[in-house]
Amino acid sequence: MTPVQAYTLRLGDDCLVLGQRLSEWAARAPTLEEDVALLNIALDLLGTARSLLGAVGDEDALAFLRAEPDWTNALLVELDNGDFGRTMARQLLVSAYQVPLWAALASSTDPVLAGVAGKAVKEATYHLDHASAWVVRLGDGTAESHARVQAGLDGVWPYAAELFETDPLVESLVQQGITAAPAVLLPVWQQTVERVLAEATLTVPESSWRPTGGRSGRHTEAFGYLLAEMQHLHRAHPGASW
């Protein structure tokens, strides 16, 4: 796998795993309108994932036949949904990262990434808007909703740091103009997240714990269950078409 492919796969894994998580909300959302909205976001992410995985290899082989250590998504996207507050807090953190990332990748020297990013940036902008609107309403809603979304945020917050980690792969791609440096994305992310949290009357969590490992295939316990559920049918019928 070339470095660009490895990187493309990371981004694709982020989208696929988060899309899978969001699709677990089907028929469970707080309102019918939100059922439609959450599945829209899930579909956007799934679509982006398919484009990215498809650029690397066979999308279904990559999605259904890869073992856990070969998945390179960030840990944040594989965390369980928790309640609606936690799901929206996680969405805020991810979308606030994806918007500047896709915006930068839209002018990547890699034509595949640039093409996917041009479309994805519009979708992520909407996801960010949606997650922000809910985080603000939950934070500045009732005492219960405030407590719940703060707890959700506190739970997912430590995992955000991993999104901005760098490693030799990222560094070499930054040098080639293929992607943006995490150090450039981080302040944009901070500004967005802090603005939303302030409007939501929520406290920016502080954490010295920075779980990591997703990019090198070391995942949380929850991820094994996600893969087991997603892959079992496909794996139970080797070689079958669907």
């Binding site: 699709s23 028929a27 579909l43 398919r50 019928h237 669907w242």
Partner: peptide
């Protein structure tokens, strides 16, 4: 919805999500 997370291909998964989503819309 019971099968969304287990759909056997990504294409089928996308179709099924869109369909279940339509049902929410139709209810609405």
């Amino acid at each position: 919805g019971n099968w969304i997370t287990r759909a056997p291909s990504l294409r089928r998964k996308a179709i099924l999500v869109a369909k279940v989503q339509d049902e929410a819309g139709h209810g609405l």
